[in-house]
Nucleic acid binder design. Structure first.
Length: 401
DNA sequence: CCTCCACAGGAAGCGCAGGAGT
DNA sequence: ACTCCTGCGCTTCCTGTGGAGG
């Protein structure tokens, strides 16, 4: 513990840095992943279509259910939120009672918590635990029909609801307009997963998919203009070069046309430049930021690997060149007995090697050596030092490195 | 051409944890 | 509080297979 004066000095210097710190960023908000820009570029067609679909709400009618499809960062959520905001304003202007709800199913986590969100929007108090899902839902439904509410719900990441639960809630929601004679529920579903339809109950699908809309990825040129807009809002004038913005768009666009990643890259680049004490983001900052983001992703992927997968990855490293499934398994047997973990069968280890292959951490190709059998040839695809670094953080693994 | 190595990878079933229904 | 159900990680058992060497 330092003296009172020391403490004040430290606090003072932190605050001074914070106050004058951002010479580059004037407003971080437009760089946040969930930011909805006032004008959404290159989505006129989708915005128009969604607006037309939900418009009947203002005539106190139920509107068609819609499914919005598209990969991450293609503007689905932003489109939905933008239309929802405008709808709310219009309803206020004409004093039309509407009830709107936006909820993210993945963040909510369970069907029950999605229902809690719905309950809050229609103004019912529901205990956050204690009720069965059915009871909670019927209270929401009762409120809707008692007050003749016209309820529009946006279910973001709806695929999560279909994958990680019984799907009862979706079934109830899609059926509701048959049951609720006064009032009604209209749905906008948003999904990143294009195969989401296949795992849906056909009855739910036919109701939910009354209208469908696909959001294409942004082109590099579109990303470039989107980024320029964000730069205007978030950066101080002249704090980023034209070339840097272009590079940012090109790098993000060459992957999947993911605007969210492109904006992320922009934000991290600004942090990189700021940490270097520069007043302007240049192309090399973008490159550093990209590397940093990729490395962070890799570290995270390694960190959350199950113990057995970590041991197997370590076995791949330790068996070096003779990396056939057999020799890796022998190494694995040695390692796992040394750390005192129960050993898996060769079949399972082979499966885990395939999983690591799919994650892009190793490459495993089947190779036939004729008389000498047929096996996977395995090699590490990422930096050995980085892997060892991360694995050492696991106390159990650290014992054998 | 046939054999046979050293596995690949599918199918079925088991035990367990966690979540839903009662 | 209790059963029932489901999904998951895993094992067991199995059939399939490319090609060097006979």
């Amino acid at each position: 513990m330092g003296s009172e004066a020391d403490q004040k000095k430290i606090i003072n210097s932190i605050f001074t840095k914070a106050a004058e710190g951002s010479r580059i960023i004037k407003d971080a908000e437009p760089l946040r992943p969930d930011y909805v820009p006032p004008k959404l570029l290159f989505r006129d067609e989708q915005i128009t279509a969604v607006a037309q679909i939900v418009a009947p709400i203002l005539r106190k009618q139920r509107c068609s259910n819609v499914l919005l499809y598209g990969k991450t960062g293609t503007g689905k959520t932003a489109t939905a939120r933008l239309v929802l905001n405008e709808l709310r304003l219009k309803a206020q202007e004409f004093k039309i009672p509407v009830c709107l709800c936006y909820t993210n199913c993945r963040l909510a986590g369970t069907e029950y918590r999605v229902v809690l969100d719905l309950a809050e929007s229609v103004g019912v108090k529901i205990p956050f635990t204690g009720l069965s899902l059915g009871e909670a839902y019927s209270r929401v439904a009762a409120q809707i029909s008692d007050n003749n509410l016209n309820f529009l719900v946006v279910l973001d990441e709806i695929d999560y609801l279909a994958k990680n639960s019984t799907g009862n809630l979706l079934y109830e929601l899609t059926r509701s307009h048959e049951k609720l004679t006064p009032g009604g529920i209209s749905l906008i579903g948003i999904s990143n997963d294009l195969r989401f339809k296949e795992m849906l109950d056909p009855r739910v699908l036919s109701s939910l998919g009354e209208e469908e809309m696909v959001f294409p990825p942004y082109s590099v040129e579109e990303l470039r203009l989107i980024l320029k807009e964000r730069v205007k809002l978030a950066f101080n004038d002249g704090c980023i070069t034209e070339g840097a913005v272009n590079l940012c768009a090109a790098l993000a666009g060459s992957e999947h046309g993911d605007a969210r990643r492109a904006v992320d890259l922009l934000r991290v680049s600004a942090e990189v430049a700021e940490r270097e004490g520069k007043a302007r983001v240049e192309e090399h900052h973008i490159k550093i930021a990209l590397q940093k983001m990729e490395q962070d992703r890799l570290i995270e992927a390694l960190r959350v690997l199950p113990l057995q997968a970590k041991l197997i990855l370590l076995s791949v490293i330790k068996s070096e060149d003779s990396s056939s499934t057999g020799s890796i398994y022998q190494t694995y047997l040695r390692l796992s007995s040394r750390v005192g973990v129960e050993t898996l069968t060769a079949r399972r280890v082979s499966g885990i090697l395939s999983e690591l292959d799919m994650q892009g951490l190793i490459s495993a190709n089947v190779l036939s050596k004729g008389r000498y059998g047929r096996s996977k040839r395995v090699s590490l695809l990422v930096s050995k030092h980085l892997v060892l670094d991360v694995l050492t953080q696991d106390p159990i693994i650290a014992a054998v490195i």
